[in-house]
Write a protein that binds this DNA or RNA. Structure first.
Lengths: 245, 245
DNA sequence: CCCCTTTCTCAGGAAATTCACAGGAACGCG
DNA sequence: CGCGTTCCTGTGAATTTCCTGAGAAAGGGG
């Protein structure tokens, strides 16, 4: 089931109308909190666990619809946790968090079917997007929904990564794509440069804040070129996207 | 019966419309879980058993439409389990999991009656494909359905392993075939290199992740040569296949 | 047991992408 | 209207990502 909330955001809901439940398993407290905050902001119900034992307990009580699992945990190897989680929640998809270089050895063989993973350092947009994808595709709790974002004559397909304006295909780089997705998931709403930076760039990004301006500039060139502009600047506040007149 | 789910994936269903039931019999827990997860993602209902006794019990209660059976079990020889399963489920097809060096003749004898086998270490694509084949061909529970994947003017027959583009036959090696099948079973959907690796290569593959790039390169040479390309790179995200314009 | 095919590693090179920097434009305020 | 602030964007360099040739290793069939 997909509904439009008062702010205009699309939310995934379970068939009974209650919020989707996500379990976050990570031992790094700051990261865990960052994630929980972001996921709650999505309108999801979040429970977090800092170790394997807590994860299993939470799985049993909380019955989440999806799990975010950091593979490196203190008390139990992430794989062991995975096993016990799987026994507890056979149908629930897992989003793995992993270090960049671990991808090749460890992860191989983990993502069985609908599972997915994200490498650290990640951006919140990425985690949320992947998680939405998992929940969307997992038949069980949440109902399947569209993967297409539409604002005016601009469309963005989260599955194929295709972006079109007025029917014409537009090529975007990975960063441009994530930025546009963030804007389009919050149409008609001003997003500050800080918000955008926190959301679209990795949490450890240490560069100049004007990358946001730069990428907005790139996007405009590709999306608004000639046509009536959809990306607007609110001086001193931020940016927003809305359909042109 | 074959239906198209919202994501565009084809699913096998039983004549009464309920999900196909698969019993997994394997004593190695991680492997069993990996398999179960992958099969559930196919939309099947999965029960698993870790030993021969459990297998027989599950067979009686669960009445699966197909069985995945590891020949090496702790308490009972795989063959004995097979015998008792057969008594319980006379017409149900079995997919054997066996070590590479297992006696070929023995396996050949076992699979005489429409059964099939896969050698360890296997790839998930392979197991799922074989199982689909078995279920598809077994007249009893599931209805016969198509074995042909089509994307644009590209076709892939899962039974005969014939691949054609624009009517012209194309020879692919085994790995190329599995990669293309995975792509074609997920058309218009970006698949990351890690996803592809987890799905198309064996679960114990420890090599370089750029084999995926390499095989994409091979596929392009054979499939896209000259013609309008169907395999597309989404830099920083993965690959996808879609009909050319 | 040899030959041919297939799989995979390695490495160089090409191309795309990300980002810093900086000058100039636009804006809002007094 | 002038000024400071904020935003825009060209340039270019560093980095990342991807592609592919060459050849070693492994496997299969005759």
């Amino acid at each position: 089931m997909t509904t439009i909330s008062p702010q205009g955001r699309t939310e995934l809901l379970r068939p009974d109308g209650t919020a989707v439940r996500v379990l976050v398993v990570d031992d790094e407290a700051p990261l865990s909190e960052l994630l929980s905050m972001a996921l709650r902001y999505e309108g999801w119900q979040v429970r977090s666990a800092g170790d394997g034992a807590g994860a299993v307990r939470a799985a049993r009580e909380f019955r989440p619809d999806a799990v975010v699992l950091d593979i490196m945990l203190p008390d139990m190897d992430g794989l062991a946790v995975l096993g016990r989680l799987r026994r507890e929640l056979p149908d629930v998809p897992v989003l793995f968090l992993t270090a960049k270089d671990a991808v090749e050895d460890r992860i191989a063989g983990l993502t069985a079917g609908g599972d997915d993973y994200v490498t650290k350092p990640f951006s919140l947009e990425e985690v949320v997007a992947r998680l939405r994808g998992l929940i969307r595709r997992s038949g069980s709790a949440a109902v399947r929904s569209e993967s297409l974002l539409v604002v005016g004559d601009l469309t963005l397909d989260e599955d194929s990564h295709d972006v079109t304006r007025g029917g014409v295909n537009i090529h975007l780089t990975a960063t441009e794509f994530e930025l546009l997705r963030y804007l389009m998931r919050n149409p008609r709403r001003v997003l500050s440069k800080a918000q955008i930076l926190d959301r679209v760039w990795s949490y450890d990004f240490g560069g100049q804040a004007n990358v946001v301006e730069l990428y907005i500039s790139y996007l405009r060139r590709k999306i608004d070129a000639g046509r009536s502009p959809m990306i607007h600047t609110r001086r001193g506040a931020g940016y927003l996207i809305k359909p042109g007149e």
